[in-house]
């Protein structure tokens, strides 16, 4: 198979790193060569963050470039727009609709753009909007928004379900496992589209 590229984009503090680790672990267990590129340091302080996950028979470059991503998981609509160009034509994007205002919007220097989801859909990309925040709140914590999105992502990848559950059990602290698994299941139940092999 050719190398598949996934991007996880969001705002520093939203838990994108945990998501890429879960994904990397699940893919490794299936015998793929995997590379995960993370962002540490300055951009973690509420800035735009991006993580790349690539897998296949042999992966060279750890980064994903414009027009290369098969799948983008966006934790925030503005971030989905920022990284749209990175999506391969025909690629899929899962967008969490929870809006987080960046500082230039907070200070009133610029406006948060309107109808973001509709405009993303108008590009012809396959966009799945998900309002993960209320789902996470109902299960028990706003902190598990990322795992709801991992579930939705798992729904569009052809990996056995128990691999994901195992990867979650190995990655999150023991007392939060049950809550995280619930969040995963809730996300998994959302209909997304399968990345083609």
């Amino acid at each position: 198979m050719s190398v598949k590229s996934i991007m996880i984009v969001g705002v520093g503090g939203q838990g994108t790193l945990l998501t890429s680790r879960l994904l990397g672990k699940a893919l490794m267990s299936q015998g793929y060569d995997v590379k995960v590129s993370e962002v540490h340091g300055m951009s973690q302080r509420g800035g735009a963050v991006v993580t790349y996950v690539k897998y296949g028979e042999k992966v060279s470059s750890p980064i994903v470039e414009k027009g290369e991503a098969d799948l983008i998981i966006a934790f925030e609509p503005l971030e989905a727009t920022r990284w749209l160009e990175y999506l391969k034509p025909g690629g899929e994007m899962i967008v969490n609709t929870q809006q987080i205002d960046p500082m230039p919007v907070v200070t009133g220097a610029v406006e948060y753009p309107e109808d973001v989801i509709e405009k993303l859909q108008a590009t012809g990309a396959f966009i799945t909007p998900i309002d993960a925040l209320p789902i996470a709140e109902e299960i028990g914590s706003v902190k598990i928004v990322n795992v709801v999105l991992v579930g939705a992502m798992a729904g569009c990848m052809d990996l056995p379900l128990d691999i994901w559950r195992k990867s979650i059990k190995e990655t999150v602290p023991e007392k939060f496992i049950e809550m995280n698994l619930k969040a995963f299941d809730a996300g998994y139940g959302i209909k997304t589209c399968l990345i083609e092999e």
Binding site: Q44, G47, I63, E79, E85, M103, P113, L120, A122
Partner: peptide
Amino acid sequence: SQSLISEKILGEKADTLKTDLEVPGRPPV
């Protein structure tokens, strides 16, 4: 990046999707 090298040496550039949305920056805070 791989795309920069591909562009400079092979003259190839990937197709990308575009919107007319102005995306505000998100500096760290």
